[in-house]
């Protein structure tokens, strides 16, 4: 089985390999020597299981995510479909303004679909979105959870807002387009979520 490291993130290794004749991606949460074994093992097992559960559930509600093939809680590994697209982080700054607007609206719509089913992604950054087949695919649900709380939905979007300001600062105004898409697709009170985001910004220390 040929295996190639696609990406080595802070938390996990993403390997491209073969599984039952298919090209797959294995997300393997690596052990970290800096933390004690009790924390390391528990954190890895918990995050692996939670992520797999959320991916499966997101898919069942029509949100684009990788298809799951295998899970190993001891190794901290999830084997899933390989998405041959581009990270939104890598394309957002270089596409035309009109395309960027459209993309951001789509992002908002996808997040709304998650929130409609109480799925909180937990780490919505442009590094965690793959653009493929004109759809936004979400990856990395490791910090996600199930919640219907307004606070959690607000924080979910706020993380994206902060991430865009740090990484796409020239285009951070595009977050407004994300909210347009979100408002269109969200089945609850979207204005309450938007207000919550403003509240979170105000709450931030030293703001």
């Amino acid at each position: 089985m040929i295996s190639k490291i696609l990406y080595r993130g802070a938390e996990a290794e993403i390997r491209l390999s073969e599984y039952m004749g298919k090209t797959v991606v294995t997300k393997h949460r690596v052990n970290k020597a800096y933390r004690i074994k009790e924390i390391d093992r528990q954190l890895i097992a918990y995050r692996t299981k939670e992520e797999a559960k959320l991916i499966a559930e997101a898919r069942s509600h029509g949100v684009s995510v990788p298809l799951l093939y295998d899970i190993d809680l001891v190794k901290g590994a999830i084997t899933m479909e390989y998405l041959a697209g581009s990270r939104v982080k890598d394309i957002l700054n270089s596409i035309r303004e009109s395309e960027r607007k459209q993309l951001c609206v789509k992002i908002g719509e996808s997040i709304a679909r998650l929130h409609n089913h109480d799925i909180i992604h937990g780490d919505i950054t442009t590094s965690n979105m793959i653009y493929l087949d004109d759809r936004i695919h979400f990856i990395d649900f490791g910090l996600g959870c199930k919640s219907s709380e307004l606070e959690d939905r607000g924080v979910d979007l706020h993380v994206l807002m902060e991430a865009s300001e740090s990484t796409h600062s020239k285009y951070s105004h595009c977050f407004k387009d994300v909210l347009v898409g979100y408002t269109k697709q969200f089945q609850g009170d979207a204005s309450a979520v938007v207000e919550k985001i403003e509240d979170i910004v105000r709450r931030g220390r030293y703001r």
């Binding site: 993130g9 802070a10 938390e11 800096y34 590094s127």
Partner: peptide, 14 residues
Amino acid sequence: FAMLTEVTERAMAH
């Protein structure tokens, strides 16, 4: 400290 180290590592990766 593990939390602090993790956030720091993620910032470094990002």
